[in-house]
Design a protein around this nucleic acid. Structure first.
Length: 277
DNA sequence: AGTCAAACCTGGGCGC
DNA sequence: TGCGCCCAGGTTTGAC
């Protein structure tokens, strides 16, 4: 669930809510979510540090801490990171709580237990958590039309798996890949190197557009996603194709289809997104 | 380089 | 009501 727009929403909220806050300590309920260091060392090492910054890289959240450490959190499919008052017993599937100053806590809850947490020296943050291979940030100036066109031209893969490849561009997941392809009018099975320059440009613009829209609606809540204040996002009400199989395309009225593409469920409009072959 | 499946997990929805 | 099956927004790994 949490793709770039969802993680960015959480980042923005937490930046306002917890930057500057001191961490009193941590409670680990499910040790395996802590990838580094060991859970015991983690709880010890995180105590009495101050949160200096909250940033994002792809789908990773990064908390810059005092003393030269970075807390890295990846929510994977069903992770939630919620800032709330201390007191209530933590809900089911809560795996980590960071106790903050002023009677607040940061709660990591994850039904499927896929989410991961690292506490790393800032100097080797990028290499340790698997972030070194990430492609450019799609909403930053480093993601240029030329770069994207080159990646398309040099790949024989289908468009859908290419968009999901975090090494090509960081932060796109299944929801926004489907939406970007519909926005650009391209079939998910089209071969990347088969696009003409007009189509490549349309896809480049579509990627940026659908991600911006997702952020502006505070993310998409289809199943589990909640923002850092525990609220659902609104973008599910604005999706054109994703999760809408069998319903009419908002653009042309044709019935949206669902296929398997690159092993992933993929929704598209057969008339807005014709297969070129 | 690419594709595919499996693995990591729990829960919801469906058909029977 | 209950059981079995399939599905789910991410990522990694290993086989071909």
């Amino acid at each position: 669930m949490p793709e770039l727009p969802e993680v960015e929403t959480i980042r923005q909220q937490l930046e306002a809510l917890v930057s500057g806050a001191g961490i009193l300590g941590g409670t680990v309920y499910l040790p395996k979510v802590i990838r580094q260091p060991s859970p015991e060392v983690f709880a010890d090492l995180i105590s009495n540090r101050k949160i200096l910054s909250v940033t994002r890289r792809g789908k990773y959240l990064l908390f810059g801490l005092s003393g030269g450490y970075t807390l890295v959190i990846h929510l994977r499919m069903t992770g939630q990171l919620i800032c709330e008052k201390e007191g209530a017993p933590p809900p089911r599937h809560t795996h980590l709580i960071l106790h903050l100053e002023r009677d607040r806590r940061l709660r990591f809850t994850d039904l499927r237990q896929f989410g991961r947490v690292w506490l790393l020296p800032a100097s080797d943050t990028r290499s340790q958590a698997g972030m070194e291979k990430l492609g450019p940030e799609p909403l930053s100036p480093e993601f240029t039309e030329t770069y994207f066109a080159t990646r398309l031209k040099n790949s024989r893969r289908s468009l859908k798996p290419l968009l999901l490849d975090q090494q090509v561009v960081a932060g796109i997941g299944n929801i926004y890949a489907d939406e970007a392809l519909h926005h650009a009018g391209l079939h998910p099975n089209r071969r990347a190197d088969g696009l003409n320059s007009r189509e490549a440009k349309a896809l480049y613009r579509a990627v940026k557009e659908v991600l911006r829209e997702g952020v502006s609606h505070r993310g998409t809540s289809i199943r589990n996603y909640l923002d850092a204040e525990g609220r659902a996002g609104r973008h599910q009400d604005f999706l054109k194709v994703h999760n809408r199989a069998g319903r009419p395309c908002p653009r042309c009225g044709s019935t949206i289809e669902k296929i398997k593409c690159g092993g992933r469920g993929t929704c598209f409009c057969p008339s807005c997104q014709p297969n070129a072959r």
